[in-house]
Design a protein around this nucleic acid. Structure first.
Lengths: 341, 341
DNA sequence: CTGAAAGCGCTTACAG
DNA sequence: CTGAAAGCGCTTACAG
C-alpha cells in the first residue's frame, strides 16, 4: 500500500468516517482531541498524505503562487539577471513561510505571457518580475485584470492600480547617487541606461539623479546619456559609443550593476582609471558588485524585504483584503565601494 | 462568466457532449476534425481553460516537477550559490520545453527534506540540487526510494542507483587543473575544499587533481589542504588558516569558484599577488568568475546541458523507461583567465 | 466518431 | 462531536 493510502483507508483503520479523518487532519475544531490524535497517528503509520489535486479541486484553490520572470528581449538567453535570481530566492522563502508552493516560469517579454496559471487553477496568483518595456506591459496587465487574475508586479506600475506594485524608491536611489557624486566634487556626469518612459524604473533613477544635480546647479547633458538594457554587454557598448563622442565626464551612473560593470570594462579598455578618472556607481547590489574590479559602488535594493512584500501583498489580494500601499515602496541604500572613492 | 466556463458550458454551446469536448481539447484522434474545430473555437471564445486540479486528479499525474535546492547548513541564509541558481534557470527552461511546470523549494540540508511533493501528487518527480554531506544524504535517498518517489540528483550519487545521478566529471575536472598548473611549472599546490568522503564532488575534484600531479611525480602535501564549504567566507577563512601555517605554495585549487574567490581575498590581504605569487583556479564558472579581480580561471560545468539531462532522465524515470547511464556524466572544460596566467 | 456514466480523492454543507 | 452525501471538473473505459 506504499504511498497509496486514501482518507478512506485511514477512516477504516481508525474506526471513524472519512469526513472525520479529513476534519482531524485539517485541524478542524469540530473533532474530539482523542479522535484527532488517533487519526493523525494512523495517518503517520500508513504514510498517508492528502492528495493535493483532490483537495485543491474541492476547495477551489491551489495554495500555490506562480512567479513569471520575463527577460529583456535582447538579453543573452543563458544569463538571467542575478538581481532577479536573488529576488526569486527571497520570494521562494517567503512563499514557503506562508505555506504556499511556488511555480517558476521564464517568459520572453516579446511573447504573450503564459499567464494562464491562474485560469487553469494551477496558481492562486502571480508575481511578475523583470526589467522590460513599460508601454508593452500595460496591455498585458490589462489582459490579467480582464480575466480577474490576482497578481502583483515588481517595479513597473500598473495604470491606476498602485496597490499592485512593489518597488524600490528608484527616484530617491538616483538622488543618493547624485548626492554622492556632488560630495566628491564629481559633477560632470554621464548616465547609461534608458531614461525614456519605456523603462519606468530606469527613468525614475535618472530623474532622481538629474533632480538632485539640478538642485546644485548642475545637470546631465543629453550628449552624456546613452541607452542600454540591463546586461553587461549592453552597458559596455553604450559606454563605448559615449566615449566615441569624445566628450569628457568624471562620473558615471549605470542604471543597473550589470550596466555599470560593462561600463567599467569600456572605460578601462581606453585607459581610463576607475575611480581616479571616472567614478562609477551602479544600482541593485548584486553579488558580483562586491567582487568585481574595482568593487562597485551601488544602490542596494532589499530583495529579502521585496520578496516578502510581494508575497504578502499578493496573498492579501487573493484574500480580497486591502493592500497597504505606502509600505510597498522600499528604501534604497547607497553602498560605497572602491569604484567611486 | 469570466474565467468560470467548464467543459459542460463548452459542450452546451457546441451542441456536443462533455466527453467530446474533453477529447477534442486533448487532441484525441477519436474526434471528428470539424467537431474539434468547433469545440476549440468556442473554448477560445468563452476563454475556457482546462482545470488542472481536476484533470490532474482524474489522470493521476500532475505534469509538474519539483526542484529541491538544499543549502549548506552553515552557509549564509541570504546568499544562494550562483551555480545552483544557474542550474535552476536551465532546469526551468528544460521543464517548459517538455510541457511541465516547475515547483521550486529551498531546503536546509540539516532538516528533513520536504520531499512529499510526490506523495501529495503535487509533482510527478523531484530534482535534487546542492552541495552537501554525502553520508547524510544516503538516508534521505533511502526514504525517497522507499516511498517509490521518482527523483534524480545532481552530483552526489545514490548508492547502487547510478542512473539517478547526473554530474560533471569532477575527477577529470581536477585533472585538468593539475595539468594546467604543471604546464606552468606551478607544482607546489594547495587545495581548499573538502577532500573527505563527505563531499563526493569536492573529493573527486581533489582526487583527479592529486592523481595527475602524482603522474608527474608531485603531490599535494596534507599540510596544504584546508577544508571549506562552498562560500566565499569559508574559502577566505580556510586560506587564512593555511597561510598561518607559513608553508609556501605557488598554486591554489579552490573546489568551487566561491571558495577560490575567498582564497584570492585572503592571499591579497597578506600581500601575495595573484597570479604572480600564487596561481588560482576555481570550479563551476559562475558569472562572477569573469568579473572578479583578477578574472578567475575555472573549470566550467555546462549547466544548460545538465538541466536538460536532469529533466530528461527524470521524465524517463517517470515513464518507467531505462535511463541512459553513460551520457549522464558531463565533460568539464578548463577556462583560463588572468588568475592563473 | 459520439454519449452516458463512473470515478479520481478530497471538503463541506446538512442532519443529527 | 460525527456520519452520509453531494459535488469540485475533469478523463476514460464502455457501449453504441
Amino acid at each position: 500500500m506504499k504511498g497509496k493510502a486514501t482518507s478512506f483507508d485511514i477512516a477504516h483503520h481508525a474506526g471513524v468516517s472519512q469526513s472525520t479523518v479529513s476534519r482531524a487532519l485539517r485541524g478542524s475544531p469540530l473533532v474530539n482531541e482523542e479522535t484527532r490524535r488517533r487519526v493523525i497517528e494512523i495517518a503517520r503509520e500508513l504514510n498517508y498524505k492528502v492528495d493535493k489535486n483532490a483537495s485543491n479541486l474541492r476547495a477551489q484553490q491551489s495554495s500555490t503562487l506562480a512567479v513569471l520572470l520575463f527577460e529583456d528581449p535582447t538579453s543573452d538567453d543563458s544569463q538571467i539577471n542575478p538581481f532577479f535570481l536573488s529576488m526569486l530566492g527571497s520570494i521562494t522563502r517567503a512563499c514557503a513561510k506562508e505555506g504556499y508552493d511556488l511555480l517558476v516560469s521564464f517568459q520572453s517579454s516579446s511573447n504573450d505571457w503564459h499567464a494562464d496559471y491562474a485560469e487553469t487553477h494551477r496558481a492562486d496568483g502571480i508575481i511578475l518580475l523583470g526589467y522590460g518595456d513599460y508601454i508593452d506591459y500595460q496591455s498585458k496587465f490589462a489582459r490579467l485584470l480582464d480575466t480577474d487574475t490576482k497578481f502583483v508586479c515588481w517595479g513597473a506600475s500598473v495604470d491606476g492600480r498602485p496597490e499592485l506594485t512593489v518597488s524600490c524608491d528608484n527616484h530617491l536611489g538616483g538622488r543618493l547617487v547624485a548626492e554622492h557624486f556632488i560630495e566628491q566634487g564629481r559633477t560632470n556626469c554621464a548616465f547609461i541606461g534608458d531614461a525614456s518612459h519605456h523603462s519606468p524604473e530606469f527613468s525614475a533613477r535618472f530623474n532622481g539623479f538629474e533632480e538632485r544635480l539640478q538642485e546644485s546647479g548642475k545637470h546631465v547633458s543629453e550628449r552624456k546619456v546613452a541607452t542600454a538594457i540591463s546586461t553587461e554587454e549592453s552597458g559596455y557598448q553604450a559606454t563605448k559609443s559615449l566615449l566615441a563622442n569624445d566628450i569628457p565626464f568624471n562620473a558615471l551612473f549605470g542604471a543597473s550593476d550589470l550596466i555599470a560593470i560593462g561600463a567599467i570594462r569600456a572605460l578601462q579598455e581606453v585607459g581610463l582609471r576607475v575611480p581616479q578618472d571616472v567614478s562609477v556607481v551602479g544600482f541593485d547590489d548584486i553579488a558580483i558588485a562586491r567582487f568585481c574590479s574595482p568593487p562597485l559602488s551601488t544602490v542596494q535594493q532589499n530583495t529579502t524585504l521585496a520578496g516578502q512584500m510581494l508575497v504578502a501583498n499578493l496573498l492579501n489580494l487573493i484574500a480580497e483584503q486591502a493592500v497597504d500601499l505606502p509600505n510597498s515602496i522600499l528604501p534604497p541604500k547607497l553602498i560605497v565601494r572602491q569604484s567611486s572613492q
